[in-house]
Design a binder for these strands. Structure first.
Lengths: 342, 342
DNA sequence: TTGAAAGCGGTACCAA
DNA sequence: TTGGTACCGCTTTCAA
């Protein structure tokens, strides 16, 4: 076991050569045993010796060396945008992560704050991921996609409100959210509908399609309903200001972007003496628990992900088949939950 | 440029050898130029040729090969716990990430859902990170720490309510939160204090120290105040049940774990006809915007991170100096913001 | 059943 | 100023 000239043993990281030496076999044999290679027969005695030597030394294979040799990795890269991630995307990524792991992929989130778009893509490409799933908020240009592809990425997939040229797309079409809210308000007899547009940076990719969906729904209804955007910051002053001039706006209802903005605005309206829902029907989005705690209880657009094929399986398929044409899947289903505020 | 026998050119990933061939130089020269190696003089003409060849081919160096050769990487691993991350930790990691990038580290979040504790650690070790920062929620045992260290990690750091044997610790001592809330309530003359204990899995590492801090504060005050834990699920039924028997509990106030539980409970109390704050003073934690929108406005424990040395610099220091003794730093500062609910 | 050796893509030493 | 080359740790073919 502990021969004298056991060179660096405890001090540095053991390699497969160290294991081989300790077990009295060659590095090849170590590799065969530890990877359960079936195309070669190793005696049980040798197997055991190798296994014991490995665990005795605390041997852990070197992922970089392995994938260098293999010529590919099973790494799926999720570039993390450090904008406030929507809860829906949060859940999506959590699920994706464990599903991918089950398919034996290594999932790595790579944050690239403070890097220019193409610098960031270069940094990702250096890791040679086999697939990249980019949430909205990371700027992925067609050039970036090309670079990733040339670096060996078999699948580049965007997740978000709109697809990007050249990549597969899992589309969360936010227009449906605005559309659902407006349909609900129309059904309740409302015809002059405000749509809150957050002033906060980074929300435009969500808020603008929601507004577009609201406009489309009003148009399509042929009720003559009017939709009007209402810029709002997420603070009490801004909400108070909007509430103070509510009656001059000539509106009878508002789709408030999401539940948090809805709560902010509803509070301000109530404080200004505007009655909800009589003078102003309010609809949020996200169906947070907190909306049910308000009085009146907040109506809200519930969003769900409808996936014909689980995204992880889609990625696996794209990676193994490496088919060419970008696929596009619509994932978002929006339904409005009617409560007391509308 | 485009000679006929340019073998696999467009189809496969270009290597430094491809760049060398295209520029008519050796691989060594390519390496010197692209890494701006100063210990060697390369003519400007050659420099330009290499640069052009590299960008022409869309060459991106292979991170695995580089770090294999170098014998180390500058990768900092953040094992992601997929519990609902506290907003405070969220911010912490966002900042840490960009600070580390500025120090030229590669920050990688590695999710290990559904892996046993030591399997997960092994998976991290395969990546040979130079440092590991583990948030609470990932189970890091002393054995795991030893494995990471032997795999070349120069610094293993835990972030969370309590330190772990053998690792450096950035401690967010949750006892301060409970302590601050109780001191506030005592100052307001309250003596029989409930402390909400979420039933949700995974919150115990936070809720238990908060309770302990509350108990300590009551004890230390020598006012004879009593503290009593109140289990609560995050749903309306559970809150309603607790509110219904509020008057039988003989309590005059409650520290509700955080703002969300506080809001849930306060709503239930009000619906049950219990007056807030007269019959029940309520204090939350987190100082969310939503608390200011409630009526009465919610008092809340505000938490801030006080960092003598920015964590990224601490990591950099530990990585370069590789000193032995585990360091421990208390980061959390808790102060209660008094509003109308207490 | 096992071992020797080539090679994945870069880097850095030594020689030219 | 540049090129040849050994080597990082691992896998895999080919021989023994």
């Amino acid at each position: 076991m502990s021969q004298l000239p056991e060179q660096s043993s405890r001090t540095s990281v053991p390699t497969s050569a160290d294991v081989a030496r300790a077990a009295g076999v060659s590095r090849a044999t170590v590799s065969y045993v530890l990877n359960d290679n079936t195309s070669v027969r190793i005696s049980d005695a040798t197997r055991r010796r190798v296994r014991e030597a490995a665990s005795g030394l605390g041997y852990v294979p070197h992922a970089a060396a392995r994938s260098l040799r293999a010529g590919h990795s099973r790494m799926v890269l999720l570039p993390a945008a450090h904008l406030p991630a929507a809860p829906l995307q949060q859940r999506f990524f959590t699920d994706l992560q464990s599903d991918l792991r089950r398919l034996d992929y290594t999932v790595v989130q790579y944050g690239s704050d403070g890097l220019e778009a193409d610098e960031a893509v270069r940094a990702w490409a250096e890791l040679r991921p086999v697939a990249v799933v980019a949430p909205s908020g990371v700027r992925l240009t067609p050039r970036g996609i090309a670079l990733l592809t040339r670096s060996g990425a078999k699948a580049v997939i965007t997740l978000g409100p709109q697809p990007v040229e050249g990549a597969h797309a899992l589309v969360l079409d936010q227009r449906q959210v605005g559309g659902s809210a407006v349909c609900h308000l129309l059904a309740r007899g409302r015809r002059r509908i405000g749509v809150v547009m957050p002033r906060e940076a980074g929300l435009a990719p969500f808020s603008e399609p929601r507004l577009a969906g609201a406009l489309d729904a009003a148009e399509a209804s042929a009720t003559g309903a009017r939709v009007r955007p209402l810029p709002l910051r997420y603070d009490e002053a801004s909400a108070g200001e909007l509430a103070a001039r509510w009656r001059t706006l000539g509106l009878d209802s508002v789709f408030a972007y999401d539940d948090e903005y809805a709560m902010l605005l509803m509070r301000a309206l109530q404080d200004a003496g505007v009655e909800v829902p009589a003078e102003a029907a309010v609809v949020g989005a996200g169906d947070l628990m907190l909306g049910r705690l308000l009085r009146p209880r907040l109506s809200s657009v519930r969003m769900e992900l409808a996936t014909a094929q689980p995204p992880a399986e889609m990625i696996d398929r794209l990676v193994t088949n490496h088919c060419g044409a970008p696929e596009r899947h619509d994932l978002l289903r929006a339904t409005t939950v009617a409560r007391e505020s509308s």
